[in-house]
Simulated scan of single mutants.
Amino acid sequence: MSTTINSPDALVSARDFTLRYGRKVACDHLTFQIPKGRVVGLLGHNGAGKTSLMKAMVGLQAGEGELRVLGVDPRQQRTELLKGLSYIPDVAVLPRWARVHELVTLMGGLQPQFSAERARALLKRTSVGLNDKVKSLSKGMVTQLHLALIAAIDTRLMILDEPTLGLDVISRKSFYEMLIDEWCDGERTVVISTHQVEEIESLLSDVMMLDEGKLVLNISLEEMDSRFVALAHDPAAADTVARAHPLLRYRQQGRSAALFDGEPPADVQALGQRFRPSLVDLFVALTRKPELQPREA
């Protein structure tokens, strides 16, 4: 993704954006843009700045520098912002006493762009009934209900902060299937923060990685595949491969492997077999300190 701010297609634009909590810098001089029609994975370890950035995008945190979301200042023009933005935080909070049909009615009164008909249609994809009480639902069902209510609002941008935290594999899969099938349409954009990197890689069009508040990668998956090279090699070639300064040395399906930013030297390529690096491997390579990386035996 380009870093040009105020592009006509940009739903989110930041330039030199910094967010601090006292002396701690949560977001460190970030410059990026997020166009329309994208599914963006926002990745980073705990404390990397993901939630702080998302809260800034929805107008809950103020920072320094420039941040525009849907063409407005999210902090100063929050009422205008919320006409085109949906947000699901890491904890889905719904009134436990309410029945599902009551929440559908309530949303219709609170949000002019909410479609009760669409919410009911989305709920048919789940095991949640209109007469169910929230307190009777499992955590996975509450998350599905929350998504159905939010996805029934006609917005251009959805921000999800660890939306499937604590759910089992089947519930997570159902959540993402409904999100992609029912909300993403080539014009809308969704930004997803998650620790389940391997589960969402196939859904993403772009990835942004934060490490200690800094943006260490901002790239489309297509660009990622052409830029980064992984090489599986025999242990005997480990020293030669290491001298080529890979980003990461690790094991892949029982074999020694190395990950490079760009094409490794021809003599090194000749020592192994190329394969596509996973997003998880790249995440490890770019967001952990070199001294923590295990050395080859």
Score class of each variant (00 low, 15 high):
A119N: 07
F114W: 04
K173T: 15
V58Q: 04
L203T: 08
E117Y: 06
E102G: 07
V128W: 09
S13F: 10
T287Y: 12
A10Y: 02
M209W: 10
D206G: 01
T155G: 11
V104R: 08
S7K: 08
S2G: 12
R249N: 08
N46A: 08
S193I: 09
G84L: 04
G254L: 03
P89M: 05
G59D: 05
L103K: 09
G166M: 07
E162A: 09
R118W: 02
L231R: 00
S138H: 07
Q77W: 10
N131S: 15
S136P: 00
V91C: 04
G71T: 11
R156H: 15
F283S: 01
E162W: 04
R295Q: 13
A62G: 05
E199N: 11
Q77C: 07
I200M: 01
L271M: 14
T105Y: 12
D239Q: 15
Q111V: 11
H195I: 02
F283R: 00
D261Q: 07
Y21W: 12
H146N: 13
S86E: 06
R78H: 10
D28R: 12
G109Y: 08
T287M: 01
E222H: 10
A242Q: 13
Q113F: 03
V190I: 14
F114E: 03
V284W: 13
D281V: 10
G37W: 06
S278M: 10
L30E: 04
V58S: 05
L215N: 07
T287F: 07
T18S: 15
D73S: 11
R125M: 05
L106A: 12
F114S: 02
V100P: 08
Q252V: 13
L231F: 01
A10T: 04
V12A: 14
T189N: 01
L85D: 00
G71S: 05
R255H: 13
K124Q: 15
L147P: 01
D267G: 00
G49D: 02
P95Y: 12
C184V: 15
E296R: 05
H101Y: 15
G254Y: 05
E117T: 15
P235M: 13
P8N: 05
F283H: 00
A48Y: 04
V100M: 04
N46Y: 12
M224N: 03
I34R: 13
T155I: 03
L282D: 02
L179C: 06
T164G: 03
P89K: 02
P277W: 13
L157N: 01
P264R: 02
P112A: 11
R23W: 12
S193R: 04
G41K: 02
D234T: 14
R68W: 06
S86N: 14
S127C: 03
R96N: 07
L67W: 00
F17S: 07
D185E: 05
L286K: 09
C27K: 03
L179R: 00
D261T: 01
L279C: 00
T126R: 07
R118T: 14
E223T: 09
L94Q: 08
K124F: 01
L282R: 00
A230I: 12
M208H: 09
F228Q: 08
K83H: 15
E263C: 09
I88E: 00
K289R: 10
E222F: 06
K124N: 15
E223Y: 06
M54S: 04
L42C: 09
L81R: 08
K36D: 11
T194N: 08
D234E: 15
D154Q: 11
A48G: 09
D90N: 14
L271G: 08
F175N: 10
